[in-house]
Design a protein around this nucleic acid. Structure first.
Length: 485
RNA sequence: GCGGAGUUAGUUUAGCCUGGUAGGACGUCAGCUUCCCAAGCUGAAGGUCGCGGGUUCAAAUCCCGCACUCCGCACCA
C-alpha cells in the first residue's frame, strides 16, 4: 500500500497525527500516537518481550531520558554525533562544510575533521556562498543532541540520542546485583531524541522517537560457544553482503562466513523470527552488511535489518557489534570497574546490539497489512489478531427486541479479557467496515436467533465468513483467537 | 539545510487566474427504516480558508515573511 493511504488511515482512525497541531509554532519531527496507535504499539512491544527478552532470559530496565554530559563525553557523542556546518556571513544560509567543499573544490574531507581544517580549505580555495557569493564565517560542529539545563544553574546535560547508554552505565550494578552471567542481554524500551536537520515522512524520521534496544554482553573469546544456536540454525534469513539479498539458513550464514560467528547469528535469527510474527512481509526484507563508510562510529561489524516499503528500503533495526568500545570508554571516564568474571576468566565484555526503531516498525506493519478489497468495496487492515488495537467488535444487528441489551451483556463479559469495542449505531455493513479499518480480526453480532438459543454470529475480517458460536464458548474462542503465537 | 510542489471541515476537494456573505462529496451525530456487509429517508453538528504582516472600502483570492506537509539531495533508528 502507498504512503498516502497509510497516512490517511493513521489520521482518520487514530493511529498517529502531528503533535501540537493546533498551534502555528508546532515544530516538525514530533508526532503523537492516538488510541489505535497505542494499542498497536503496546501489543507490538509485548510480542517483542515474548520473542526476544523472555525467550533469551534478558533483563529489562527503564533508564532516564536526560543523562549527564560525562556519559556523552565517554560515549563519543559529543565528539562524533555532529555535522560540520558553515554559515554565510552575508545571507545567513547554512551549509554542510564537507559537502560544499566537495562540490565547489572537488576535495573530499571527512566530516569528522577539525573545524579549522574546513576553514583552511575554504579560504585556500576561495569558496563562496553558492546563494549570494558572500563569504563564510568559521566552521562549527552542529551536534544533533538536544541540550538541557538542569536546575536553576542550568547544569549541562542531554536528552539521550539512543537508549543504550543507560544500559552500559548500569551494567556493573546489574551484573553484580542481578546475578549476571555472560552472555547477558539487557533490554530497554523508551524515547530517544535527535535534533535532525530535516525530519520527514511522519514516523519514519522523527526528532523524538521510540527505540527498543537490546545490548548483549559477551565474552569475546567464546563467540562460537552458543548452545542455543541450535534453535535458529534452520531459520531462514535473507542476507546481503554484496549484490542481491540471498535467502539462507542461519547455519549456512555462519558456515559461509556471511555472519562472523554463531553468537551474532543466534540474535539475528531470533530477530528474524520476531519480525515474521509481526506480519511484516519478510520476503521483502534483508539483513544488509554495512561497509566501512556506512557504519556508525562505534561499530565493528554492522547489519541493518531493512524492509521494502512504498518509500523504498527502510532501516528498521541496526545490529552492531560494538566490541568493548562502550564499556572501556565508560570505565576510563568514570573510573568504575566494568570487567566481570566469566567462569575463571576476568573479561571486559564485548557488546552486540539490536537497536530497533519502534515507530518505523509500526509504520511498516501498517503499510504491509493495509489492503483495498475492491470486490467488496472496503479497506482492510489485516493485522495479526494479537496486534490489533481492537480484538473484537460487539454489535447488535438491530437495537430493538432486546438485542441491544444482549450485546451490552456480551460486551461486559469480554471487556476486561480483551480489547472489545461495542457498536449499536448504523447499518451492520458500515459497522463491519469500520472494524475492518482498525484491524479488528472478528466481530460478534447479536441477532434474533441469539434470543432463542444463546448463539451469536462470528464474522471474520479477512474472509468475511460467518459462523455461529455459543455465547458460553465466546471466552475461549476469543482467547484462542487473539493469543500470541 | 538546499531545490521543487503544496496547505480550504475528521478525510477528500471546488472556489484563487479575473478580490465582493466559503460549497460539494465521503465520514460523524440524532431519528425513521432495516433479521448480516458502506442501501434509503429526515434532520443536525462541524471552517481562525496553515500563521503573521502588507495592499485595498473589501482578501481563501493579490504581495511579502514564516511554519508545516510531500518529492529530490544530504543525514539517519
Amino acid at each position: 500500500m502507498d504512503y498516502e493511504s497509510v497516512m490517511k488511515l493513521a489520521l482518520e482512525r487514530g493511529f498517529y497525527f502531528p503533535s501540537c497541531e493546533v498551534y502555528a509554532d508546532a515544530q516538525a519531527g514530533f508526532w503523537e500516537y492516538g488510541p489505535s496507535g497505542v494499542g498497536l504499539k503496546n501489543k507490538f512491544l509485548e510480542l517483542w518481550r515474548r520473542e526476544l527478552v523472555r525467550r533469551d532470559a534478558m533483563m529489562e530496565i527503564d533508564g532516564s531520558q536526560i543523562m549527564s554530559g560525562s556519559v556523552f563525553e565517554a560515549s563519543g557523542h559529543l565528539e562524533n554525533f555532529a555535522d560540520p556546518i558553515i554559515k554565510c556571513a552575508e545571507c545567513g544560509s547554512t551549509f554542510r562544510a564537507d559537502r560544499i567543499i566537495s562540490e565547489a573544490a572537488g576535495i573530499e574531507i571527512p566530516e569528522g575533521a577539525e573545524p579549522a581544517e574546513f576553514d583552511r580549505i575554504l579560504s585556500e580555495k576561495g569558496v563562496a556562498c553558492p546563494k549570494c557569493k558572500g563569504s563564510f564565517g568559521g566552521a562549527k560542529r552542529f551536534n544533533m543532541m538536544f541540550g538541557v539545563g538542569i536546575g536553576p544553574e542550568g547544569v549541562g546535560a542531554y536528552l539521550r540520542p539512543e537508549t543504550c547508554q543507560s544500559i552500559f552505565v548500569d551494567f556493573p550494578r546489574l551484573y553484580k546485583t542481578m546475578r549476571g552471567r555472560l552472555p547477558l542481554g539487557v533490554a530497554q524500551v523508551g524515547k530517544s531524541f535527535r535534533n535532525e536537520i530535516a525530519p520527514r515522512q511522519s514516523l519514519l524520521r522523527l526528532r523524538e522517537f521510540y527505540q527498543a534496544e537490546i545490548e548483549v554482553f559477551c565474552n569475546p573469546s567464546r563467540l562460537d560457544e552458543v548452545d542455543k544456536f541450535a534453535e535458529v540454525q534452520d531459520t531462514t534469513i535473507r542476507i546481503q553482503t554484496d549484490g542481491d539479498p540471498v535467502p539462507m539458513t542461519c547455519g549456512q550464514a555462519v558456515d559461509s562466513g556471511a555472519i562472523p560467528n554463531r553468537f551474532v547469528a543466534y540474535y539475528i535469527g531470533i530477530l528474524a523470527e520476531f519480525y515474521e510474527k509481526t506480519g511484516i512481509n519478510v520476503q521483502r526484507s534483508r539483513f544488509r552488511r554495512l561497509g566501512e563508510k556506512e557504519k556508525a562510529f562505534y561499530a565493528d561489524v554492522a547489519f541493518d535489518f531493512e524492509v521494502e516499503t512504498a518509500t523504498g528500503w527502510l532501516e528498521l533495526v541496526a545490529c552492531n557489534y560494538r566490541s568493548d568500545y562502550d564499556l572501556s570508554s565508560h570505565a576510563k571516564k568514570s573510573g568504575e570497574k566494568f570487567e566481570v568474571m566469566d567462569n575463571d576468566e576476568k573479561v571486559l565484555p564485548h557488546v552486540f546490539e539490536i537497536s530497533m526503531g519502534i515507530d518505523r516498525s509500526l509504520y511498516t506493519i501498517l503499510e504491509h497489512s493495509l489492503r483495498e478489497d475492491e470486490k467488496n468495496d472496503r479497506t482492510v487492515l489485516s493485522l495479526r489478531p494479537y496486534l490489533s488495537p481492537v480484538h473484537v467488535g460487539v454489535l447488535s444487528l438491530v437495537k430493538k427486541d432486546g438485542l441491544k441489551e444482549k450485546a451490552d451483556e456480551i460486551y461486559m463479559q469480554l471487556r476486561r479479557k480483551c480489547d472489545a469495542f461495542l457498536d449499536h449505531s448504523g447499518a451492520i455493513g458500515r459497522r463491519y467496515r469500520r472494524l475492518d479499518e482498525v484491524g479488528a480480526p472478528f466481530a460478534i453480532t447479536v441477532d434474533h436467533q441469539t434470543i432463542k438459543d444463546d448463539t451469536v454470529t462470528l464474522r471474520m475480517r479477512d474472509s468475511m465468513e460467518q459462523k455461529r458460536v455459543r455465547i458460553s464458548e465466546l471466552d475461549s474462542v476469543v482467547a484462542e483467537s487473539i493469543a500470541y503465537p
